[in-house]
């Protein structure tokens, strides 16, 4: 799934706070892009525009060549897996049920839900903890459940907003390993917002740096390269 951000601007509080200013960006299908920058620089807003949680004030967002302004949000999001820093799991459901829920609500047949959930649990390494409630899992395990939930409907694009922000280095690595595997095997496009230097450096992918709502650097390599003036 390829994405084109075309001269997009977005502001809040009736224009008092400008989150994005005339941002243009192209992300090719099967590409992995890190969005970096300090808090409040527009990373999350850019992600929200991609999965249509927000609408741009000006400009267009095109996904696979289609202006998403003309596509119902629900139809668009069926192809997108969304991961957040805070895992937002259902506390009364087990790890299995949390993952399965995302497939059930779009009407997947129970047999398929079960098969795919078991596959995903294996992928995220939680088969032995399938019956545990979120409160019985560590932070890293909870994030892996959230990733499983984002993956179960086989998205073509993964939008991850600081998914390793609350994790220790070991769990961060496990999360990255899962996403790397999905990126490699399923050819999934990944847009990953973070301010974790080590995460960016470890993968050596394309890095887009945002500052004051503008793209100030678009490079391939590590965090350091992205931090240099253009």
């Amino acid at each position: 799934m390829d994405i084109v951000i075309d001269q997009v601007s977005k502001s809040y509080q009736r224009g008092e706070f400008v989150a994005l200013h005339d941002v243009s960006l192209s992300i090719a299908s099967n590409e992995w892009v890190f969005l970096v920058g300090a808090s409040g620089m527009g990373k999350s807003t850019l992600l929200k525009l991609i999965y249509k949680e927000e609408l741009p004030d000006r400009g267009r967002v095109l996904v696979d060549g289609t202006d998403i302004g003309h596509v119902p949000g629900s139809a668009l999001r069926r192809s997108i897996g969304i991961i957040f820093q805070n895992f937002r799991l259902l506390e009364t459901k087990s790890a299995f049920e949390n993952i399965a829920y995302a497939a059930e609500v779009i009407g997947t047949a129970p047999r398929d839900v079960r098969r795919r959930t078991l596959e995903i649990l294996d992928l995220v390494g939680l088969t032995d903890k399938a019956r545990r409630l979120p409160s019985e899992l560590s932070g890293g395990e909870q994030q892996r459940v959230a990733i499983g939930r984002a993956l179960i409907n086989e998205p073509k694009l993964i939008v991850a907003d600081e998914p390793t922000g609350d994790l220790d280095p070991d769990n961060t690595q496990r999360v990255l390993d899962i996403l790397k595997r999905v990126h490699r095997e399923k050819r999934t496009t990944i847009v990953f917002a973070t301010h974790a230097v080590d995460v960016v450096d470890r993968l050596g992918q394309r890095v887009v740096r945002l500052e004051g709502g503008r793209v100030v650097r678009d490079s391939v390599g590590g965090y350091w390269e992205a931090s240099q003036p253009a």
Partner: peptide
Amino acid sequence: EVEIQIQRWVGVGPWG
């Protein structure tokens, strides 16, 4: 609220 958010994220429309 979380259930509703999850449904939105995976592509369930408001009527759903």
